[in-house]
Nucleic acid binder design. Structure first.
Lengths: 239, 239
DNA sequence: AGGGTAAGTGTTAATTTGACGCAATGCCAA
DNA sequence: TTGGCATTGCGTCAAATTAACACTTACCCT
């Protein structure tokens, strides 16, 4: 489907830092978000899932639409031209489509270690970048990332989505560091734990994280069944 | 811009009921949301504002993008055909565009009494309908309305956007009824008032609502300056 | 004028949140 | 091998917020 694209802000967590997966487009300045187009018979959520799978090799990832970027001047003609040259899409005679592009923003939360980053057809590199140390970005992709981060922060206040960024087993301090990084603020260790427990979505495992300095912390994993149940009943405090 | 439309869920409040403005499309079954297309050099928010202005005569309304509906099968071919027949847009030879349409959902909060409902080019009627008593709706417009309502409810928990639905002057019980209608739950009169006051966005006026049965309630209006200031600093309770 | 009803204001208990203490654990260095 | 030290697990208490409810005042209606 022409004139509309999908861009994915793929968040990962590594070395206590929040990362975003970016592509380096050939012959052009700046990095770009993984993106793509909507196939003819595809639900847009499936398009986003497909793009995500192509770049990361992952399936069944947490993925959420968050905003449509529709400034008339947001497109970069060079990039648009490149896209039309390299794909099956054909610009009509009136070159309507060259002039502007909407993009639907999705954000995804992935397990950093499980990702196999792969460049796409237009790009020469596909790499993680620290959210606090982003390279120069093409078009409005910097703004899209900021908006995704803002959305993620908000969602984190209502739904404990953060663990999607962690491996299956993790410790409470690791989970807390993740939250602190996303929210960019220090949290009290004990109150954090109490709050997390109150959701009843964590399973404490029998084993602990070993080989680490100091007292060995418990390992946890998520109780997905309880998580979905809790979400349905609503976590957020109502009026 | 073809292949993408904008649909507006315009909420109004009247007779203690939440209303939605709907259009009756000529020669077709069911009612539809006011919608339209994006002009060439127009920011999509401006497109939504334009559509809203055309249907209601209003300007400077509270308006918010909330979701993109992108199911591959959501379009109704009859309606799409009608649109192409009646507008300047031309379907390309491959009739790509006849096959599916994305729509960007916006919701708007308007002062019911200020609206002058006007049908558009395709429709024979433009009327308010009770949210709890909707007529048969075209395509997925029923789902769009439900999603808009869900979004409105969520937003109401964070930002006191409700007053956008009321006239400039209103009483506390009126405001409370509005909230009760949107959230579909009973609220305690005294706690509601305290909470509202705590936002410091209301100005109590000197006069009261007169001619009404029982004790005359105070009139209030919004202190827009303080409202925007409060929003910037964030109303929601952080972690 | 008095009854009925809704509005304005205040009080109190329950719950949630924020700030912090202390003992237990497990490296590491002496 | 043992004591120091940083970190984890668990708990406490006060402050703030929320929920539940009582009482007085005002205005229409009969």
């Amino acid at each position: 489907m022409p004139c509309v694209s999908i861009d994915c802000v793929i968040f990962g967590f590594h070395d206590n830092q929040l990362k975003v997966l970016l592509l380096k487009i050939e012959h052009l300045e700046g990095w770009a978000l993984p993106g793509g187009f909507i196939y003819k018979d595809e639900h847009i959520d499936d398009s986003a899932r497909r793009i995500l799978h192509e770049r990361t090799g992952l399936q069944d990832i947490f993925l959420q639409q968050f905003y449509v970027f529709g400034d008339a001047k947001r497109s970069d003609e060079n990039i648009t031209k490149l896209v039309f040259e390299k794909t099956e899409f054909k610009a009509p005679e009136n070159n309507w489509l060259l002039q502007r592009f909407l993009t639907i923003g999705y954000y995804a939360l992935v397990n950093f270690n499980a990702v196999h980053a792969a460049p796409d057809y237009f790009s020469e590199a596909c790499e993680w970048h620290d959210i606090n140390n982003l390279p120069s970005l093409a078009m409005d992709h910097g703004g899209i990332i900021q908006e995704a981060l803002r959305t993620l922060r908000t969602h984190l206040h209502y739904e404990p989505v953060g663990y999607n960024l962690l491996p299956e087993k993790f410790t409470m301090p690791e989970l807390q560091h993740l939250y602190e990084t996303i929210l960019d603020e220090k949290l009290d260790r004990r109150n954090f734990q109490r709050k997390m427990f109150s959701y009843h979505i964590l399973k404490r495992l029998k084993d602990r994280r070993k080989g680490v300095a100091h007292k060995a912390p418990f390992l946890y994993s998520f109780d997905l069944r309880k998580y979905h149940k809790a979400l349905q009943e609503g976590l957020q405090t109502a009026w």
